[in-house]
């Protein structure tokens, strides 16, 4: 049943966010500490275990894959509901801070990536098993 996969996904998120809130309170922080990340770890662990195979294969798995494929449209909707005017109106200071922070962070990516050895590049996108694959049918992305 499709709903089993969706329910598993939802349960992972709820548990993750709850643990994240608790972690935040424990650390005395007014924020959710890694709730979504914890939810992702939960899903990875559950999907990898033999006992829960029925929940992540067949129709149940389709329920998770559907939401995974809806991710980009959700991000597009997210972009469309950002406060872009505030970013543009923030003036020079906000602009310079934002630009420099991003530049410096970009530059650090190759440096810190050396820790633990560089990863092997993924194969070209058309070999991907992601449901979004059919979108990139023009191959040369």
């Amino acid at each position: 049943m499709v709903i089993y996969g969706v329910a598993l996904l939802a349960a992972c998120l709820v548990v993750g966010l709850y643990v994240g809130e608790l972690l935040g309170q424990l650390l005395g922080v007014q924020a959710n500490v890694g709730g979504v990340g914890i939810a992702m770890l939960l899903l990875v662990l559950i999907a990898g275990s033999q006992r829960s195979r029925a929940l992540v294969t067949g129709h149940s798995g389709e329920g998770i894959k559907f939401w995974s494929a809806m991710y980009i449209p959700i991000v597009v909707a997210m972009a469309a509901s950002q406060n872009v005017v505030a970013a543009v109106d923030g003036g020079m200071l906000a602009l310079i801070v934002g630009v420099l922070a991003v530049l410096v962070s970009f530059l650090l990516v190759p440096l810190i990536s050396r820790i633990g050895g560089a990863g092997a590049p993924l194969p070209p996108l058309e070999d991907s098993l992601q449901p979004v694959k059919e979108r990139g049918r023009n191959g040369n992305l």
Binding site: L9, A39, M40, A47, K65, I74
Partner: peptide, 19 residues
């Protein structure tokens, strides 16, 4: 659709298939 709830739900779903 683009709010925090759906965004987080979508993000977690992308972890499906990660080793």
């Amino acid at each position: 659709m683009g709010g925090g709830m759906m965004r987080d739900f979508g993000i977690v779903a992308t972890a499906f298939g990660v080793q």
